[in-house]
Computed example of a mutant assay.
Amino acid sequence: MEHQVLDVEQRGEVEWVTLERPDTGNALNGLLVAALVSYFEELRQREEIRVVVLRATGKHFCVGLDMAAGAFSATERSPHSIWSVQREIARIYLAMRKCPQPIISLVQGAACGGGFSLALASDVRIAAEDARMNAAYIKIGLTGCDMGSSYFLPRLVGASVASELLMTGRFIHAPRALAVGLVSEVVARDGLEAAAQLLVGDMLLTAPMGLRLTKEALNFSVDAPSLDAAMAMEDRHQSLLALTEDAGEAALSFFEKRLPQYRNR
């Protein structure tokens, strides 16, 4: 059933993952949640894939939870039933951070609620000129802190902007998102794929293990208790990688003025 809501196209060492519910603004229903959970949890074991590009068809990136979807409109509205749905959706974002591959999100139109969190949980965000994002949860009588927003957003834009967005549900549009560092680049909608290709190309010029451990180091360092702790991890990673065949190949290719031929060894 996954092909109906999620398209996965492999291009060499890169997978382009596309949300395929354009008629609903790519809203998260039960099938799409299950497909995303399955994809990102399995991705952790697939070293042959080095980079993932996450995008969507249609006008919007993802407008959030599909409130009309049967899986999320249970007749029994008990704490347990709602908690079960909540935890199932949360698995998407946890899996995105745990997989070693960098994830590049291409955001066009609206990215709301859970769709906003898909972008936040990615490693790099590239926005179309018409992109707008918000933590929509507070607009429906809930807290603005959901699906990792209270964790990701302050670390990306600082406490003041994060508090403003989470406490109001205001949209942040592409120009301001770029100004506050929420996205890396703003391009025309039809330039999203080309912008991603340039970034992917640079990532693929790095040693495979070096790229994976860079994501790992960033994940741990954002919560590191001290500079000493962060640098201790960096020292271990560098000492390990310095002894790999790929590190020797990187140095040799630099002096020989050619592209490196990595073997992931």
Rank of each mutant, 00 (worst) to 15 (best):
A232Y: 04
L243E: 14
D130Y: 03
E193S: 09
A121D: 04
L205D: 11
C112K: 09
S38I: 00
A242M: 10
L204W: 06
Y93V: 01
G191W: 01
I104D: 01
E193C: 04
K59G: 07
Q86A: 11
F116E: 04
C112V: 05
S117R: 01
T244Y: 09
D235I: 04
K139G: 13
E88G: 02
G70A: 06
F254D: 15
R46H: 11
R50G: 11
V63I: 08
E193Q: 12
G210T: 04
I138T: 07
G158H: 03
S226E: 05
D146I: 15
P100C: 08
G144S: 07
E15Y: 04
W16L: 09
K59Y: 12
S84L: 12
E9A: 04
V157C: 08
P102Q: 04
P225C: 05
S160Y: 11
G114L: 05
R77F: 13
L213S: 08
S84H: 12
F40S: 00
H80S: 14
R46Y: 08
M233E: 15
H237L: 15
A69G: 11
Q261C: 11
L31W: 06
S150N: 08
H3L: 05
A121L: 02
V161K: 07
G169W: 12
K139E: 14
L198C: 03
F61S: 08
L205P: 10
L241W: 13
E47D: 14
L211E: 09
I49R: 08
R21V: 05
Q238D: 15
P22W: 02
M209C: 13
M147V: 13
S73I: 00
G169C: 07
P225S: 05
E47S: 15
A207V: 04
L182D: 03
P102M: 03
R170F: 11
N264R: 08
R263M: 09
M1S: 14
E2A: 08
R263Q: 14
T168N: 05
V63P: 05
T24M: 04
F40V: 00
M167T: 14
F116Q: 06
R87F: 08
I126Q: 00
R87V: 13
E88W: 01
T18E: 14
